[in-house]
Amino acid sequence: MYTGIQHLHSGLAYLVLIALIVVIVLMLIGSLSGKEFSEKDRKIALVAFILSHIQLVVGLILYFISPIGLNLLKSGGAMSDSAARLTALEHPLINIVAIVVITIGYSRAKKLVDSRARFRSIYMFYAVGLVLILSRIPWDSWLG
């Protein structure tokens, strides 16, 4: 079960990154072109929103069933080792913050009336979330 969830978390990460990049580009184009924010735009942003939240839930499940996640913090040795600290603390914490930022951007855009402001809310908050996610991906273990 652990290996399956680990593969799901890694595979879903690609979808989340692609979805966030696509949404950021489309919302940026929408903002710069002055077009009206449509239901289609909202649904496109919603796809990335949902995928990022599913990724968070899968990641949290993985964190608590993993032999390394929470156990590294309990053992006390995680803070002195940068790779262990990334796995045990930085990756989950920063990604939770990233999903909160994405959620704020999406929720804020739903409340706004002006189309340009709605586009900007989504692309700016999603971009900050994406940067946070990219900053804490364990690249060595993910690509290696």
Rank of each mutant, 00 (worst) to 15 (best):
P67R: 14
L86A: 08
R118D: 10
A19Y: 07
M79G: 09
L15G: 11
S66I: 08
A19R: 02
L56P: 01
V16M: 06
L15A: 14
A45T: 01
L72G: 02
L56R: 04
K35D: 07
L62M: 09
G30I: 02
Q55P: 02
I61L: 15
V25F: 11
I24N: 07
V58M: 01
D81Q: 01
E90C: 07
S33T: 15
A109P: 09
I44W: 11
L51I: 03
V97N: 12
I61H: 10
G105Q: 00
G34Y: 01
G34V: 14
D41W: 10
G76W: 11
A98M: 07
V57M: 12
L73K: 08
L46W: 07
S38Y: 14
A88N: 03
L62T: 05
S115R: 03
S75N: 15
A19M: 07
R118W: 06
M27Y: 03
H53E: 13
I18T: 15
V25L: 09
G34R: 09
Y14G: 11
L70G: 08
V57D: 11
I61C: 02
S107Q: 09
I24G: 10
L73I: 15
L15W: 15
G77W: 07
D81W: 00
V23S: 02
G30E: 06
I104R: 03
G76P: 08
G77I: 10
M79C: 02
I54V: 13
L112N: 10
S82D: 07
I21H: 04
E36Y: 09
V16N: 02
M79K: 05
S52D: 13
R85E: 00
I18E: 04
A88W: 00
G34P: 12
L51C: 10
A78Q: 01
G59H: 04
L17C: 01
S115F: 00
P92S: 13
R42H: 12
R116Y: 13
I102M: 14
D81M: 00
A109L: 01
L60E: 04
I54M: 12
S31F: 11
L32C: 09
A98W: 06
A117P: 00
A45W: 00
V47G: 12
L73F: 05
A19E: 03
Q55T: 06
L51T: 01
P67F: 11
T87A: 15
K110E: 15
N71G: 04
L70T: 07
L112S: 08
A83E: 06
A19Q: 03
K110T: 10
F37C: 10
V57W: 10
L86Y: 00
F37M: 07
K40G: 10
S52H: 15
